[in-house]
Amino acid sequence: MPCKAVLLALAATLPLPAPAQDNPLLNGETWQALRYDIAGEAPIAGGAGLFEVEAPYRAHDAATVPVRIRQTDPARAITAATVVVDENPAPVAAEFAFGPGMSPIDLELRVRVNQYSDVRVIAATAEGLAMAGRHVKASGGCAAPASRDPEAARAVMGQMKLRSFVPASGLRREAQVMIRHPNYSGLQRDQVSHLFIPAHFISELEIRQGAELLLRMEGGISVSENPVFRFGYVDNGAPALSVTATDTEGNRFHADLPKEGGS
């Protein structure tokens, strides 16, 4: 048989790669052990029809896995959301509270994934809890080396930047807030001493436009280094987004970032 024909025949026997979003939640034993601690006895409905979660089937970088929460039913307000990475040492990555100006929710953040894991979002509405998520194949994210040595990371810690995007329609805008912070997980080693670097991460974040709250976050070690948050919101006319972050060492960072002037 000609070489080309052999290759074609072999290719026909190989499994096709999974589509990018063909990675539903597996809901294995780990989730069954976590469920009560996270949601208690409250019933959790499926999130289909209310919101969806986008995350890669195979992550390009386990230390910066993009997770997008996109609301598909704007008639039901999502007031809060918890992001959980089941197999991480500290599974609750972040807990968000949303102001009315965020509705309908469209929020993306980056998380660490330590081993193949379900990544799920539990959303709160007036009707109760709803859940959606994806199974992500990644490993080593929580122990991945930081991109900067500790001294260099501290020198720029707390610096913030805002990118504003052209409004999709009407008063709705899109923004990306970036914060310089090593967000050490406690599982990374100093590349010189080889000792573990103590956990040090942003534990609280608040973004407002004027006096109006857009979002508030309580974060953990699973949020990536140099956190980035991209989100849609309804512009209330305030000239800037006010961003305040507090980390686990008690450092407080604040910036008023003008809405105009971004890309």
Results as ranks from 00 to 15, higher is better:
1 M>D: 01
5 A>W: 03
12 A>L: 01
13 T>V: 05
13 T>R: 13
15 P>D: 01
16 L>R: 15
24 P>Q: 05
25 L>H: 07
25 L>D: 03
28 G>S: 02
32 Q>R: 15
35 R>D: 00
36 Y>F: 11
42 A>N: 07
44 I>M: 02
45 A>H: 08
45 A>D: 11
48 A>G: 07
48 A>S: 14
50 L>F: 11
50 L>Y: 10
56 P>L: 10
59 A>L: 06
61 D>G: 03
62 A>V: 06
64 T>G: 01
66 P>Y: 12
68 R>C: 06
68 R>A: 15
70 R>S: 11
71 Q>R: 10
74 P>M: 03
75 A>N: 12
75 A>E: 10
76 R>V: 15
76 R>T: 15
79 T>R: 15
82 T>D: 05
83 V>P: 06
88 N>R: 13
93 A>S: 14
94 A>S: 08
95 E>L: 10
96 F>V: 02
102 M>F: 09
103 S>Q: 15
103 S>A: 15
106 D>F: 08
107 L>T: 07
109 L>P: 02
112 R>A: 14
113 V>W: 11
113 V>Q: 09
115 Q>R: 15
117 S>F: 08
118 D>L: 09
123 A>I: 06
124 A>M: 06
125 T>Q: 07
128 G>Q: 09
128 G>V: 13
128 G>A: 12
130 A>H: 14
131 M>G: 07
140 G>S: 03
146 A>P: 01
149 D>V: 07
150 P>R: 13
151 E>H: 11
151 E>K: 14
154 R>K: 14
157 M>F: 08
159 Q>I: 05
169 S>C: 00
171 L>D: 05
173 R>T: 00
173 R>C: 05
175 A>C: 06
176 Q>D: 02
176 Q>V: 02
176 Q>K: 14
177 V>L: 09
181 H>T: 03
181 H>V: 04
183 N>I: 02
183 N>Y: 04
185 S>E: 00
186 G>F: 14
186 G>L: 04
187 L>A: 09
192 V>E: 07
196 F>M: 01
199 A>P: 05
199 A>D: 01
206 E>D: 02
213 L>I: 06
217 M>L: 13
218 E>D: 04
220 G>Y: 03
226 N>C: 10
230 R>C: 02
234 V>T: 14
235 D>G: 02
236 N>K: 12
239 P>V: 11
242 S>F: 03
243 V>T: 10
248 T>M: 07
248 T>N: 06
248 T>A: 03
249 E>N: 12
251 N>S: 14
252 R>S: 08
256 D>K: 11
256 D>P: 06
259 K>V: 13
259 K>W: 13
